[in-house]
Amino acid sequence: MISVEDVKRRHELDARSRGYRLNPDPDFLALLLEGLRVNEERYGYPSCPCRFSSGVFEVDRDIICPCDYRDPDVQEFGTCYCCLYLDEASFERGAADPIPERRPPEMQMRGLLAAGGEASQESPSEESSVETGRTLRYCRVCGYVVFREEPPYVCPICRAKREMFAEIDMGLGVRST
């Protein structure tokens, strides 16, 4: 079983690697870290403590901490949605205010209605609907390749913007002989 200290260490390391800080309010931070620990125990992955998790990995994938929305949120607002990660300026100020939700409403609703954990995971129709619509793309700056419905907001490797992602043409045409 993972401890709160393990969770804290993991997210501190991650914050440092990105030049972020963890929330300076000790009570608020403790609640978020405990929330991450509880979610990891419940679902098997540390989904965002401030968002609803369905328990279905494919549906919750974008809100596993650090979530897909963290980098653009910290860039724009100085904090991520749950206020675990702050930029240096917000950290120095000692506070972060709630920010708008960047996760698309249809994905939030999909999560709520998919709540059912194992039952939904076993359903082949659900799995296949999740599988469709993924595209192979690469970052034109660093070459990072991603296979998802949408390109990331920010390249996780070189931090290039979403616009720098291009679809990969597999060129699987029939070769003429």
Binding site: F28, L32, G35, L36, P49, C50, R51, C82
Partner: peptide, 9 residues
């Protein structure tokens, strides 16, 4: 609310 969420608290 969510029991794990800081803003809910």
């Amino acid at each position: 609310a969510l029991s794990t969420c800081g803003w809910c608290k």
